[in-house]
């Protein structure tokens, strides 16, 4: 299976297409071409020099032409890397500017709805109140999406500092779980929390870890069928604490598993289960955990469910 994936990765044309680059702008292709050209030229030069050319001047000229060709290819490679770097920067700037610019009108909308609610709330007809609630819910969703985009842009620019402090991870998990209870009850999903006794305090940024746990629990509930169980476990794991979130949901098919932590990735199974979602939650969660000195991973079987886990350093480290 791994060999097949490895061979798939070698499909350079597909890989360049996926990055929306022409072959002459695709570093992988140019590298491969350069490698093949070097091997071919060396063999040819050796063969010609051995068999047909006795004049060292001709051999030198041959080597000179070869060096010239390699120089041109090098130039193309450098250019394509510059282009990639520039595109990455433009994309990152774009996300950052758009998110910032969206925040102000979103705050205006949110506060306008709040003001309407306060002034007219008790006198509103049911139907109008329902529409108002729908508008508020959607502004809230947009607000969350913009907040996620901002976090992604900060992660990419290395501007998401974590402020580690010792804290009770069990208590934090309980708080996050209780925030999700109403949502879980709506789908009749039971959330169990099991934790080992006498755990040391975690050493990480508690606000960021709250976000990680919220993302994991949100996914577990979103991609689970009704009347199932979600289990959260917290154990000691060497010098680390390990938290696992297990669901009995739709699971992730094998082909999609390797892309799961890529930003904006939404698997087909995820899309079938829930059309809304930005594909940013797991990317953000993993980046945050790693910046806090931990690791994140998962086990999943399509149709059976998933276990997402993360580790965090403890104060005794």
């Amino acid at each position: 299976m791994d060999l097949i994936n490895f061979l798939k990765d070698l499909n350079i044309i597909n890989s360049c297409k996926r990055r929306r680059l022409s072959l002459w702008q695709c570093p992988q292709f140019i590298f491969l071409l350069m490698g093949l050209l070097i091997i071919f030229s060396l063999l040819l030069a050796y063969f010609l020099a051995n068999r047909y050319i006795s004049d060292p001047l001709i051999v030198n000229s041959l080597v000179f032409v070869l060096a010239l060709v390699l120089m041109i290819l090098n130039y193309l490679i450098t250019n394509s890397f510059e282009k990639l770097a520039e595109v990455l920067k433009i994309k990152s700037d774009f996300i950052s500017i758009v998110s910032h610019q969206l925040r102000t009108p979103l705050a205006s909308l949110r506060w306008s709805f709040d003001a309407l609610d306060k002034r007219l709330g008790p006198n509103l007809q049911n139907e109008i109140a329902e529409y108002l609630n729908l508008l508020k819910e959607n502004v809230e969703k947009m607000n969350e999406l913009v907040a996620s985009l901002l976090i992604v842009s900060r992660i990419e620019e290395g501007r998401l500092p974590s402020l580690p402090e010792p804290f009770d991870l069990g208590q934090l998990l309980e708080k996050v779980i209780s925030n999700f209870r109403i949502y879980a009850q709506a789908k009749e999903i039971k959330i169990d929390f099991l934790k080992e006794n006498n755990l040391p305090p975690a050493l990480a940024d508690p606000r960021q870890i709250e976000q990680v746990m919220s993302n994991l629990l949100d996914n577990a509930l979103k991609y689970s069928q009704e009347r199932t169980l979600v289990q959260v476990r917290l154990i000691k794991f060497g010098k680390f604490l390990k938290c696992e979130v297990e669901d009995q949901g739709f699971g992730i098919n094998r082909a999609e598993q390797k892309y799961l932590f890529n930003k904006f990735f939404r698997g087909e199974s995820a899309f079938r289960a829930q059309t809304s979602g930005s594909g940013l939650g797991l990317f953000i969660a993993k980046s945050i955990v790693e910046r806090n000195g931990g690791q994140m991973g998962f086990f999943s079987k399509q149709g059976a469910g998933s276990i997402f886990w993360f580790t965090l350093p403890t104060k005794i480290n």
């Binding site: 102000t104 705050a107 205006s108 709040d114 003001a115």
Partner: peptide, 15 residues
Amino acid sequence: DERALQKTLGDYLKS
């Protein structure tokens, strides 16, 4: 400088 925020928060505080 945002008129909508001046209006919403301003009115709320006045009330």
